[in-house]
Amino acid sequence: MRVRRFSISSSTRRAKAGDLRKLAPVLALTLFAVSGCASFNGMQHPITADDLDKDKIVCPTAQQLKDYSDPALTGVQKRDFRDGVVTQCVIAINAKYIEFKTALRTDAITSNLATDVLGLGLTGAAAVTKHATSKQFTQGALAVVGIGADIDKDVFFNQTLPAIEASMDANRDTLLSNIVNAEKNDPTGANYTLAQAALDLIGYQDAGDIDIAIASLTKTASDAAAKAATALNAAQTKPYTAILLPPDIYAREKAVTDKVWAMVDPADQPKLTRFATALGLTPPAGESFQNLQGDVVVAIDSAVSAPGANAAQIMSSVESAYQVSTQ
C-alpha cells in the first residue's frame, strides 16, 4: 500500500525570504510567466497633461479645485461643476484603463513565456502587496511555486488574465458606484466636495492595478479555502469514520468527486492542484495525478461523512473551493 505524505497547510505559516515554496500558499491561484527581456506593467498609467487640456496635470486640477471653492458657486451650480469635473476625470481614467488592459495582453503575448518563469504563490493580500515583483514583473530565474505545473499560455490567457481583469473591473465598479452615490446624495455640492471626489478618483484610478486585483482574488479564494480546510479531516493518512449520508448530500458529494475523477492529466493538473491546495492539502513533489485525485476525493469524503459534521455546510465550502479553483 502506498503511504501518502500529505500534510494540512496552516494559515499561520509565514513566508521566508528566498524560498517561494515556503510561502505555503493557501491557494496558488495566480501564475505569471514572463520572459527575461519583457515585463508586465502591473498598473495603468496615471492620467497626465496630455490626456486633458495642456495646462492640467491632474484631474481635477488645482484650478478646478480653486474654482470649486469660490463662494459665488453655490447650490445646483456647485453640484453641476463638481459632477462635470468628476465625469471628465472618470472618462480620462477609463481611457487609460482600456489602454492598460490592452497593453497588458499585448505585453504578455510578446513575452517569451517559456523562458524565465515566475510563479507567485500567494497567501493573502499582505503577501501580494509586499511582493515587489507583483507590480512590475522583472526578469529572474525564480522557480515556479511548488505545484509542479508547467506554465503555458493557455493557463495564463484562459484562466489567470481574465480573472485578474474581472477582479480589477469589479473593484473599479465598486469605487465608481461609491462616487456616483456620493454625488447623488449631495445635490448641492456642499458635503461631497470636489476635493473629496478627487481622493475617490485617485482610488478609482489605482484600482487598475494587478496587485489589488490579485489581492482581491486571493482573499476570495483564501476565504473559501479556509472554510473548507477547517472542516476537512487533518489526518489524511489514517482511517476515518463515516456515517450514511442523506441522499441530497451524497448527490452533491458525488457530483464534485466525479468532476475530480474526470480531470485529465496533464491538462487539468493546475486545476487539480489548486483545488487540493484550496482544501488544505499540500501535494508533495512528484505526486502522481491519480493519487492526487484520490487524496482530494478522500479529503472531501472524510470531511463530509464524519459523524456530527455539518455536511451541507462542508459541501458548500467544497463546492465554492472547487468553483474558485477551476474557474
Partner: peptide
C-alpha cells in the same frame, strides 16, 4: 497498485 483508504463505520450501524 491502487491507493487504498480505510473507512470506519460505527458499531451500532444496521
Amino acid at each position: 497498485m491502487p491507493m487504498t483508504q480505510t473507512v470506519n463505520v460505527l458499531p451500532a450501524t444496521s
